[in-house]
């Protein structure tokens, strides 16, 4: 299907592909798994042995190398990019790594709720709910089959999973989002105070934008013909001007500031200049 994009082979990439990152089967596959586990445990043991200063130095080196990898990929023209061939494999590796991190999350949740359950008391019922929800989703999620559109019969496990996921989780998700409507109204009533001229100006602008976005507001100036010289004063046109001129200028200002701030912070993290700031003053 068409020309494949040309990807430059990374340094030693062919060797890696032929000797290390190649599909294995049978005994070799299991030996590779065992070797990976042993290697992982070995690295972990070495890391545990290191003192705090050595660990920090290692972090500095790793951070710099990772930043250098992506900088090379971004700055080097495609023809001379020495790491281009590794971007995809590294991306896949990082995805797998982040997949494993969910285990950390589960351990954390099980420890917090397990301890509370063992202790008993008022909050224990929440922990029971957590374990029920967690096990229910896990078991029925594994047993469930994909549902075709228009399917009329599904297995028990699929049915339960659909109720838990679509019926409960999705609906609760939408409900929590819908709560925003109530919070916006109460926050506007409680917190929006006109104490200064600027605040007054902001209120006027807010009202104009709110009115300009809904038909009830647009109807207020609908008597001005759209092609009339005074059409500029129609509320939707005022709203449009506010959004496309002053708002755009402000949004760009914030965007520039944030981008520059993010750039400088990235640089500090890459060069590990930020790192010492956490506890230097102690």
């Amino acid at each position: 299907m068409g020309d494949q994009p040309q990807v430059v082979t990374g340094l030693f990439q062919t060797w890696f592909s032929e000797h290390l990152f190649c599909p294995l089967t049978g005994v070799w596959f299991w030996l590779a798994v065992l070797a990976s586990i042993l290697a992982f445990c070995g690295v972990l043991a070495v890391l545990q042995k290191l003192n705090s200063a050595a660990r920090r130095r290692l972090t500095v080196v790793c951070t710099f190398l990772a930043g250098l990898f992506y900088s090379l990929d971004f700055f080097c023209p495609e023809r001379w990019d020495p790491v281009q061939g590794y971007v995809q494999p590294l991306g896949n590796f990082l995805l797998v790594l982040s997949g494993f991190s969910i285990g950390l999350g589960i351990i954390n949740l099980v420890m917090v709720h397990g301890r509370r359950l063992a202790r008993g008391g008022g909050g224990a019922i929440n922990s029971v709910a957590f374990f029920l929800g967690f096990l229910g989703m896990l078991v029925f999620g594994l047993l469930a089959q994909p549902v075709e559109d228009g399917a009329t019969r599904v297995s028990f496990a699929t049915g339960v999973f659909e109720v838990l996921f679509r019926g409960l989780l999705n609906s609760l998700d939408a409900t929590t989002f819908a709560l925003l409507g109530f919070f916006i109204v109460t926050a506007a009533y409680r917190a929006f105070r006109i104490r200064t001229v600027e605040a007054g100006l902001m209120t006027v602008v807010a009202f104009l934008v709110m009115l300009g976005q809904v038909p009830a507001g647009q109807a207020l100036t609908a008597w001005i013909p759209e092609d009339h010289a005074l059409a500029l004063l129609r509320i939707e046109n005022i709203q449009n001007w506010l959004l496309t001129v002053p708002n755009t200028a402000a949004a760009r200002g914030i965007l520039f500031g944030s981008a520059v701030g993010g750039f400088a912070l990235s640089l500090r993290v890459w060069l590990s200049l930020e790192q010492g700031s956490y506890f230097r003053e102690m």
Binding site: Y189, F192, T203, F207, M210, L211, V214, A216, G217
Partner: peptide
Amino acid sequence: SLGHLLVMFLIVIGN
């Protein structure tokens, strides 16, 4: 429309 009008009304009476 009614939601926006309610917010404006509440801002006014709050102030």
